[in-house]
Design a protein around this nucleic acid. Structure first.
Lengths: 336, 336
DNA sequence: CTGAAAGCGCTAACAG
DNA sequence: CTGTTAGCGCTTTCAG
């Protein structure tokens, strides 16, 4: 630290602005170019991004505001987002709101407003709208991840959760199941409600009555999944299959399954939304819906960077990626 | 955006410097104070941190440089670090080097040098020294997490891995096991070598010969754990117990255990370093060593913030937290 | 306690 | 192509 563009200019015996121009890729007489390069090397100079940011009002930072840092799939998204953004010259500021705590969200938003970042990725289910509003006021581009707003023009990248859920539940029905329980998440989460919607549509399309007692809320948490299995297992008429709508709950559910000694799939067929290590670590291996997390992250970054660069040609962009269905052996095929 | 301290000053009819003083907690005549507060509210002003940073050369950002974003325990550390730092007014820049890729580390370091952050937390096993060196040149405080350097004065917070490993392996020995395999990580990782060292010490203290074929390297990766189990199960004289030195490998190992139909603990006792959801999801539940991740993160943040504030009174600080031993039922007690 | 003024390091007109 | 100059928004002496 301490060595500035001024020092480089003096050392290279050119004007400050010439150095600046060189630094920003402008054309400079080759003689001067060499001198500047030599000076930079000699002094071990690196430009001060803060000062640069003050002038250009660009920080080369992107904020990721999330409300689900505890969800294992976030780690994958985070790493991929960080990698992609870095490639484009941005660093990632990680802002985790822990269950969408309102005060924290507000603080984060203020932070962002204080020239904190050039762009924002939001996936804090629930408070995304606040963030969106404020960011818009500040003129900072936002891309919504895992949700999709239709009432206000916004770039959104999401996974077709309803479709994925439909495929999963339909598979269950085709396998001969009718008593199908669903372990759901909070209704305020779009991802949760979409998955639930997929379930409902199958029931509707196949004219299977929806039974209230088979609908249990696991709050997208580990404990919730655990409790839900306990609950449905106490029912007078147990379901023959269960659709678990996220990974955290799936883990909890599998613990309960172990504890109760439920045989899968003989006594209970299991199908899960999200597919991670767990799916192949339990016996039988779990049939599951896998989200295209890498593509999701990549698409989000691509759009955001374009917006930051002022390219709004395809605004608002709505991307809806398709999940994959992975058939393994946790579902009993009843008519075989 | 757009509204600056100048606007506030004009609105409140005071000098810019008075507003600045107020903003930074200096004493201001109560009359002016009110006017300023009103102006701020009216204009919805929030200070520009970049400009502030340029003057004070503080960015209120901390960088977390890690080489193990894929390790599940990182998620816990990350979230806790973010929370703690935010409480102290810092935002977290997440820099994941993916397996300590050298070029990326270099870029990260340059970034940090360019007034990117006020402080750095490093846990990029392998390249920490580079980072340390460069940061020192820039005068940016660094706290090393999960490692400990003794040759150069540095703040380090780590878990006593050797101790934890010792306890685990000793438990195995006391349970009557002598043929104990160890699934290890890369020697270049301090965490890996420490855990291995704990194993060796038990063997030494109890005068059990170390058998080369029981020492397998799983590279701290999922696949590695899987392969290692396969390998030791092909041995003419199989071990009766295995000590798995991290979570990722433990997951892979458990998949192999399932696949080979190995009965735990009857045929093979299992003890793991790191204790997460998996431990209670498999049957039998896994006996494990649990790292105090929250304390680890808290301690790191506490030290770093003190250093940033110029308090070097206890430098260099070396903290060595003790892991907990969680007894469950994956170890066969042979003399019962 | 307050205000005027200098300047953090850099970029972006603008003349030359 | 190069150099001079004027700020970006804020903090910080230094007089008053």
């Amino acid at each position: 630290m301490g060595v500035t563009i001024k020092d480089v200019a003096k050392e290279a015996d050119v004007a400050i602005s010439t150095v600046s121009k060189y630094l920003n890729g402008g054309s400079v007489r080759s003689e001067n170019k060499k001198a500047i390069e030599a000076a930079i090397r000699k002094l071990n100079y690196s430009p001060n991004n803060v000062a640069r940011g003050l002038r250009t009002s660009r920080t080369y930072r992107v904020g990721l505001v999330t409300g689900s840092g505890d969800n294992p799939h976030m780690a994958t998204l985070l790493d991929e987002i960080e990698r992609q953004l870095w490639k484009d010259g941005y660093s990632l500021t990680y802002l985790n709101t822990e269950c969408c705590d309102e005060n924290t969200v507000r603080e984060y938003i203020d932070f962002v407003a204080e020239t904190g970042v050039d762009g924002i990725i939001v996936t804090a289910s629930g408070n995304s709208r606040d963030c969106l509003q404020r960011a818009r006021e500040c003129g900072i581009p936002v891309v919504i991840m895992e949700e999709c707003y239709t009432d206000v023009p916004t770039d959104c990248v999401q996974v077709d959760c309803a479709g994925g859920a439909y495929q999963a539940v339909e598979y269950l029905v085709n396998a001969g199941h009718h008593r199908i329980a669903a372990i759901c998440g909070p209704e305020s989460y779009v991802t949760a409600s979409e998955r639930y919607r997929g379930y409902l549509r199958v029931m509707e399309d196949y004219e299977i009555p929806v039974r209230e007692e088979y609908l249990v809320n696991g709050r997208f948490k580990y404990d919730g999944g655990y409790e839900c299995i306990k609950k449905i297992w106490e029912l007078p008429e147990r379901p023959t299959a269960v659709f678990i709508t996220n990974y955290l709950m799936c883990m909890g559910a599998m613990e309960a399954v172990c504890e109760l000694g439920i045989r899968v799939p003989e006594e209970l067929s299991v199908i899960a939304f999200d597919d991670f290590a767990l799916s192949v670590m339990v016996r039988p291996k779990l049939t599951a819906v896998r989200q295209p997390l890498i593509e999701l992250a990549d698409e989000v970054c691509r759009i955001l960077v374009r917006r930051i660069n002022g390219d709004y040609s395809d605004f608002p962009r709505k991307v809806r990626l398709k999940p994959a269905f992975i058939e393994r052996s946790s579902v009993l095929l009843m008519h075989e």
